[in-house]
């Protein structure tokens, strides 16, 4: 099957699985931003254009399934995919440091936009939001990303050894 079709179907299934099983990853009300992890990985490995397109597609799916307005998640993930691709073009050579920086920036950017659209109009304190949501989620997402990254490296090593 065409790689594009595989990725599109894969992201569709992923979006659904994410909404079913994410509640089991909930710790003290914080869930990891697995969507950001997926978009960053796509951007780092496939480049700016594909990162932006798949980020847009995944964001639109999330908006249509659970989002409040059509386009907010699409916009955020499109930029995350685009910037991840740009980082890959400039600096990424399968470097864990670049991936770490990308995922932290992606998660913080996502939460900043959500704060500006949902909480700033209600005068919710930024410091409180950082301590309660932004920082814990960034740390949790990073931890999960590192686990996924090392798992991917391990699988790739096994496949290369098998070949």
């Amino acid at each position: 099957m065409n790689n594009t079709v595989k990725t599109v179907l894969g992201l569709f299934i992923f979006a659904i699985i994410n909404t079913i099983y994410i509640r089991y990853f909930n710790i003290m009300g914080i869930t990891p931003n697995i969507n950001a992890i997926v978009v960053v990985l796509i951007g780092l490995n496939m480049g700016m254009a594909k990162g932006a397109y798949y980020g847009l597609y995944l964001g639109l799916l999330i908006d249509m399934i659970v989002g409040s307005s059509l386009g907010l998640n699409a916009l955020i993930y499109m930029y995350i995919g685009y910037v991840s691709g740009a980082l890959a073009k400039r600096m990424y050579n399968e470097s864990i440091l670049i991936s770490t920086i990308a995922i932290i920036i992606a998660d913080i950017f996502y939460n900043l936009v959500i704060y500006c659209t949902h909480y700033l109009p209600k005068d919710y304190e930024f410091i409180k939001y950082c301590i309660r949501v932004l920082l814990p989620e960034a740390i949790y997402t990073l931890g999960l990303f590192l686990c996924i990254y090392y798992l991917m490296v391990l699988i790739r090593k096994q496949i290369n050894q098998g070949l």
Binding site: T31, N33, I34
Partner: peptide
Amino acid sequence: VIGVDPSSYSKIFI
């Protein structure tokens, strides 16, 4: 209940 919003900031489910 067939799904929940994966984000930390909202409590919406399907």
